[in-house]
Design a binder for these strands. Structure first.
Length: 361
DNA sequence: TTAGTATT
DNA sequence: CATAATACTAAA
């Protein structure tokens, strides 16, 4: 019976997706496995029991191919397809992908162009200059790989931590941000705000008129150990203890849309944005826009964002990408059908180089 | 400008 | 045919 639980099915489907990706497979196929994994995560029932009774065909994200593989896995405890994949693709390529800045495309290239199939082989090649000349391998990138390999021995590999363990750091950083010149409202977002029992990183949001300046201040905080990247709207760092902290700076008029985006979950955002498209709108971290014309309809508060999509405000703890979006539908009359209630006032709500309306011309 | 990686 | 949208960096 259920020797193989849903959690292992999720891990297996994700592993298949990772291996297919470094093999250079069709992106849609890779996504299909990721989507299936996501669906299993949010599934109410045990797959092994479904396999014994109704079968797996009806599950969202399961076509015939994935249904057959999952059935094999939950009934026999093994999966021939995965075993063949692991025999074909060097599994160490997945470790190479854990180096910051190195993803599946690069791992694939290293494997095919230079026969690199392990971290040791990569290190050797990097040290003896064998990487230079490979596609998209400049001096800068080689340097970044060498630094990432160096840190690897420190073994500070990122892990999810209990939220209680992270809370003091979150409080301290919120306080520090509030103390920076030009800082307006400051809030935590991400999985921490959603109340998840464990968090992988901290996501902080700050309202400001001078984002670049504020992010420079953030990067210079004493609690910051290393700056991973810093742009005009976003800065990622490693804080003391190795925890990654992402800080996003936005104008006050966009705070609601940005907070919504940054709170996630990813699956929730995708559902919201999909709903927006079907309503003739588009949603991003800067606001809600009408698709034709790109007029900005709102986004100063989360409430406004959800209302423009015809939804009641959804508590962060529910934003996991299950059925919460459908459950939050408001009666037709005041929803997306009549979205022009909010107008965007005030000058330049957007940050300087105008990220505004993402809808292509 | 484009590709790749990253983020929710 | 195919889930959304955007930011940052380095290469070309």
């Amino acid at each position: 019976m259920g020797m193989v639980g849903n959690a292992e099915v999720v891990r297996t489907l994700e592993r298949i997706a990772d291996l297919l990706e470094v093999r250079g497979e069709n992106a849609f196929k890779v996504r299909a496995y990721r989507l299936a994994a996501l669906q299993v995560e949010n599934l109410g029932a045990e797959l092994s029991e479904l396999a014994a009774s109704d079968g797996l065909q009806g599950i969202t994200g399961f076509g015939p191919a994935i249904a057959a593989k999952v059935e094999e896995l939950v009934t026999t405890g093994r999966l021939g397809y995965l075993e063949r994949l692991e025999a074909e693709v060097p599994v160490s390529l997945l470790e190479i992908c854990t180096l910051g800045g190195v993803g599946p495309r690069t791992a694939h290239m290293l494997w095919k162009h230079a026969g690199i199939d392990s971290l040791d082989a990569l290190e050797a090649a990097a040290r003896c200059g064998a990487l230079a000349g490979l596609p998209r391998m400049g001096a800068r990138t080689v340097e970044n790989i060498l630094r990432a390999l160096d840190r690897r021995s420190g073994e500070t590999r990122p892990r999810r931590r209990p939220r209680e363990e992270v809370a003091p750091l979150a409080d301290a950083l919120l306080e520090a941000l509030r103390g920076l010149a030009g800082a307006g409202r400051v809030e935590v977002a991400g999985s921490f705000r959603r109340g998840r029992p464990t968090v992988g990183d901290l996501d902080l949001l700050v309202a400001t008129d001078r984002p670049a300046e504020l992010l420079a201040g953030f990067a210079a905080l004493p609690a910051v150990e290393r700056v991973l990247l810093r742009g005009d709207t976003k800065c990622s760092v490693h804080a003391d203890g190795g925890m990654q902290v992402d800080c996003r700076a936005v104008a006050a008029a966009q705070f609601g849309a940005a907070w919504q985006y940054f709170t996630g979950s990813q699956a929730h955002n995708i559902r919201l944005r999909g709903l927006a498209l079907r309503a003739g709108l588009t949603l991003n971290e800067y606001g809600v826009f009408s698709i034709d014309g790109g007029e900005r309809l709102g986004g100063a508060t989360e409430d406004e964002v959800y209302a423009l999509l015809g939804l009641r405000w959804i508590p962060p703890a529910e934003r996991e990408g299950g059925d919460e979006v459908d459950a939050a539908r408001l009666p037709e009359s005041q929803g997306a059908a009549a979205p022009a209630r909010f107008t965007f006032e005030g000058p330049a709500a957007r940050v300087d180089p105008a990220p505004l309306h993402p809808v292509g011309h």
